[in-house]
Simulated scan of single mutants.
Amino acid sequence: MTATVAVTGASGYLGSRLCQTLAGIGQVARMGRKIPSARFTFGGGTSAGFFRRHSVTALVHCAWDFTLHKRTDLMARNVGGSIRLMEQARAEGVQTIVFISTISAFPGCRSDYGRAKLAVEAAAHRLGALVVRPGLIFGDQPGGVVGALDALVRTLPVVPLIGNGRQVLYPAHEDDVGALIRRLVVQPALVVPGAPVTAAHERGWTLREILLELAARHGRTVGVVPVPWRSVWLPLKTAELLGVRVPFRSDSVVSVLNQNPSPDFSPTRSIGVPFREFVRSTAGKTCHAQ
């Protein structure tokens, strides 16, 4: 029987790319708030019996509502909705559940995003689900944080550098993240359920290096000016409280400043999916170093 993999957040940046990758192993049920036949929202969940009706054998839960800024809303909707979805999937016979967390989730993390993901990870462990923590995701047409940084270096001659710019981030190419998740869907026994798998290259890049590299990718030279993190965080937080949409969330500033000092890559090595290093630019052209 052909496997059916359900993917939440199928219209988002990472979710849409995962759907393309997972299509190679069977049918993909794309789930999202704007998909009538497979509607999923954090407040309303999905229809009762959805997983059983569609013979879903694996669920990749990638969705996350980034419009929520209050901690109470994050816990009630993103966390509560994620747990209810995974519980329903288990009750309806889904064999493999993969929860897409974040490298920003670790004991002692300070961002609301990381703490909320940790709360879902705890439930995933209880349900025997697999947890994947992607790093800073990049690609040919990046979205998310890298997309926002890329837009800055393309338009500004001088880019504000949060703090001292020495924060170490771990980039992860979108195709490699997809390959890892595909491997786990096919061979879930490769890792212990609930034990987080870091999906990123093991070489960390500082925020300053990433900004300069993104600029070089576009053949540009930009200046970087260190600024106090509060001078970046406060305007963003104020805009969010006023209901103004901003390209970079205030909580992302907290997340960038407080990275996991020692992510564990041992589960990643055991899976055997290589991650390429961050983009390297030469003579105005971009190549990928393995």
Rank of each mutant, 00 (worst) to 15 (best):
M75H: 12
N78G: 11
F248W: 05
R249H: 14
P157T: 13
A76P: 03
G44N: 15
V146A: 03
D176A: 13
A48R: 14
P235W: 08
R110K: 14
V159W: 08
G243H: 07
V254W: 04
V225H: 01
I162C: 13
R203A: 15
L127V: 02
A119P: 03
L130T: 09
L59Y: 07
E121H: 04
S101L: 01
I25S: 06
S55E: 15
S250N: 10
L184F: 08
L214W: 05
C62Q: 13
P261R: 03
T286R: 13
V227A: 07
V191K: 01
G44V: 04
H201Y: 14
C109H: 12
V98N: 04
S255H: 06
G243D: 09
R208E: 13
G43Q: 12
R208P: 09
G44L: 07
I25V: 13
R126S: 12
K285Q: 15
S16R: 11
G128Q: 10
G80C: 05
T286M: 11
N258E: 10
G49L: 00
T102F: 01
S104K: 02
T286E: 10
V120E: 00
N258R: 13
V7P: 00
A151F: 13
S281Y: 05
F248I: 04
A38Q: 12
E240Y: 02
P107W: 08
L156V: 05
T206V: 02
V79D: 08
A195Q: 14
V5N: 00
R39E: 13
N258H: 15
V273K: 09
L214G: 02
P157R: 08
G114M: 12
V132I: 11
V273F: 06
S250V: 05
V192F: 02
L59F: 06
G147L: 07
V56E: 06
A124M: 02
L214N: 06
R182V: 02
L257I: 00
G114S: 09
V131N: 08
L136P: 00
S281G: 12
G243C: 14
T67L: 08
I181H: 02
P263I: 05
H201K: 06
V79L: 06
V225M: 15
A10S: 14
F265H: 11
A48H: 12
M75A: 11
I162G: 10
H288G: 03
Q290V: 11
V60Y: 02
T268Y: 07
G135F: 09
S37I: 02
L68N: 06
P263R: 12
A63S: 00
F51H: 11
Q27K: 14
G45N: 04
D150V: 01
Q95R: 15
